[in-house]
Amino acid sequence: MPYLSPQDKHLTVLNLFTTDQPEKQDKLIQEMRKIVDAATYEGWISSTVHAGQDSPGTANLIQWRSGEDLEKRYSGEEFRHRTLPVFQDITTSIRLLQSEIVHTQRHPSEGDVTEISPDRDDYTVIEIFKVSEGNQDELIAELGEGQSWLVDAPGYRSHSVFKGLRARFLDGPFAVVYSQWASKELYDAHRDQAETEKSEVRQKSEARVNALKTESDWNSYRVIHTRGAGE
């Protein structure tokens, strides 16, 4: 199963798709699984497919050996003339985000590694933060080390922070937070907690994030399929 770790030095690609109908989400998943199950690309390490929960859509977290290997995939006839047109036809938005993982944190009960797997019951949240030039590293630090207080949040399991390197269909610097929670109910309670009930350290951290980001959006997911090279 894939693991999220800054020590691995993988290029991580998050392909995020939104759509306007549950049936189109099913079609997206079907097309993604076909690609993942047939993947033999040079430098490809793993792909993990996520089904949207709060809003229709999908996410595919893909680990690559390098950006050069990914660009070979993007420049190929199959991607340009079949894969991309198929997804454009059934989506309302596409973001292909290249990144590197720079921080991981887990609740002590989660052990020493961050695993993503359909065998787990995580309520997974992927949040995209856009940021102005010059503020990316500071925002990433606040989203990572600056949120050590999350270990005390009921239902929190882990969060991993990715630094955006380059993207298709997204302009400007960005960061991504991939977090795992025990349930939707506990995550919603955390996100909707009244300001007066938040700890002082949380209030300061969130105020700093809000000051640094230019915009953000998120969706929740369930991991439904994964495959690695050699499987």
Rank of each mutant, 00 (worst) to 15 (best):
K204N: 07
V125K: 04
A182V: 10
R82K: 15
T114V: 15
F162N: 10
S99K: 03
S93W: 00
H103Q: 03
D188I: 08
E115S: 08
S160N: 15
I90E: 00
E200K: 13
V161H: 02
Q98I: 00
R120E: 13
N219V: 06
D112N: 10
E145M: 03
S199P: 01
E142F: 02
I94S: 13
A175K: 01
A175S: 14
E197K: 12
L139H: 07
L96N: 12
N210K: 10
Q203H: 08
A175Y: 03
E127D: 07
D119A: 10
V161P: 02
S148T: 14
S205I: 07
K204G: 06
V209K: 01
E133I: 14
Q193Y: 02
E110Q: 15
P154Q: 08
D192K: 11
S199F: 07
A182D: 09
S117A: 08
T83G: 00
Q98E: 14
F79N: 09
S109D: 14
D112I: 00
E185V: 09
Q180K: 12
T92F: 01
S93P: 01
A167N: 07
G146L: 05
V131T: 10
D152G: 03
P108M: 11
E115T: 13
Q147L: 09
L97I: 08
A141Y: 07
S158G: 06
E206F: 14
V209E: 01
I90R: 04
E200P: 04
G155M: 09
L150A: 14
I116C: 03
T104L: 01
S199R: 09
D122S: 13
P118T: 09
S183T: 15
R168C: 00
T83Y: 02
